[in-house]
Design a protein around this nucleic acid. Structure first.
Lengths: 129, 129
DNA sequence: CTGCACCTTCCACTACACTGGAAGGTCAAG
DNA sequence: CTTGACCTTCCAGTGTAGTGGAAGGTGCAG
């Protein structure tokens, strides 16, 4: 398959496919005599793996590392398991931060709603923030 | 005060202060005859406002707009109130996304823990993702 | 032979908030 | 007079995941 066909089959753009190659998620593609990239069907499975991994919130760098393990002939199970565990820890931290921020902002907003406009001219630019 | 003193007083770097000026959060500073920036004490209040706004998760562009309203002589109350309301909506959306993602990733991780390593060699690169 | 779709590379740009470094001017102390 | 701590400007890079466009080669139909 040429790059455009892979793009159509996966819903990605040719730009993105070249970008993935550049970032090491796809191996350097075989070329026909005219220089066009040429892909086998295994590429579609690989791109679907990349898609699933993206949906799971992994970065391209993380996905690249998993693929590198796999391409080295090793089953990436342990690696993937550890990666997902880290991912969960990260997500919990991010969620906690956002929830705390939400609470802070909600308090600030409540103050703006129940406010005396005259207070606006204190020396702190805005009395609500 | 010179820029270094402001930096020390606020805990920011001189780089950041020049950057804020460039982005319109600080007005073009007065200069001494040698070209050095020269700040009044009101700058500290302004930078503290910027700090509080940053803590509330506002972007520099949003803070700049609030300051522009304020510098125009208007009390930015209504503007700030609307901004905070938007911010809460955004945060709720982000939190919901992260919670959903956390659930997806947790399910994937559970599968890796309770797994049969032999399944790793199916044609999908990694059977867990 | 000309148009069109397709492919190639390379460079720049997006948003965000800085940060690093080069090259040079200023000022007080020793 | 030199050292060192300041200050100035400007350019470039960080990380993320691409996107946009220029300039040019390839291959097939009409």
């Amino acid at each position: 398959m040429r790059i455009g066909e892979v793009a159509t089959a996966t819903g990605l753009t040719t730009k993105t496919l070249r970008f993935y190659e550049d970032r090491g998620l796809l191996p350097s593609a075989d070329r026909s005599s005219n220089g066009y990239r040429h892909y086998g069907d295994d590429t579609l499975a690989r791109l679907d793996f990349i898609r699933r991994s993206r949906v799971a919130g992994l970065t391209l760098a993380q996905i690249r590392d998993v693929l590198k393990v796999r391409d080295g002939g090793q089953a990436p199970c342990m690696h993937v398991s550890a990666l997902l565990a880290n991912q969960i820890t990260d997500l919990d931290r991010q969620i906690a931060e956002l929830v705390a921020l939400r609470s802070t902002v909600a308090d600030l907003h409540d103050a703006t709603v129940a406010a005396d406009p005259a207070a606006c001219d204190s020396g702190r630019i805005c009395s609500y923030l």
